[in-house]
Design a protein around this nucleic acid. Sequence first.
DNA 1: CTCTCGTGTTTCGGATTACGAAACGTATCG
DNA 2: CGATACGTTTCGTAATCCGAAACACGAGAG
Lengths: 91, 91
Amino acid sequence: MAAMDLLGRRWALRVLWELRAGPTGARSLLAKCEGLSSSVLYERLRDLADAALVVQVDNGGYELTELGRELGTSLQPLDAWARRWSNTLDS
Amino acid sequence: MAAMDLLGRRWALRVLWELRAGPTGARSLLAKCEGLSSSVLYERLRDLADAALVVQVDNGGYELTELGRELGTSLQPLDAWARRWSNTLDS
DNA sequence: CTCTCGTGTTTCGGATTACGAAACGTATCG
DNA sequence: CGATACGTTTCGTAATCCGAAACACGAGAG
């Protein structure tokens, strides 16, 4: 499964996750992802760009491509599950 | 997002992915995941077990828990997307 | 019983990757 | 001209991963 090789890399899924909200700057991504270093972020952004899931916009920020948004929506059930799981951890 | 910290680790998602098919042995998982080393596999299996997503069965193999199966089904749209994406790579 | 084969599992040295802070280039605002 | 904010790169250190080897255990065969 080729998609897993890409999404399995550290922070790849998380970065995609954050980009679902819309165009986001690099420094903003770093702020949202606690523990992510800038060097790794740009490496992942290149990975995702090479896979045609992300493109860079005029002002320098990043946003999902059509393909990336499709992946984003198919991540929605995972989002729902993660929220439920997060709640069971509290109790 | 706590789920991302777990699933963001290398091979974590992929191992879960493979376990959706049903109870699977460790050596079988190594065969399915080309490039995965045994040391990392057992580390991930421990991670997933600590998160109550995976349990070890009598004969030594591994299978998803109820929680793990829920996560598995929420991965189904991602599965469908990955297949579509894999096809676009061929053309 | 013993030998063999197929498991799950651990160990460890070398290779790869990630971290984290610093710095560079550029643009904008006062 | 500073000062600030941003995208980006660099680099030494730390963490992680790979990969092969080995160990432990059980099931069958001879």
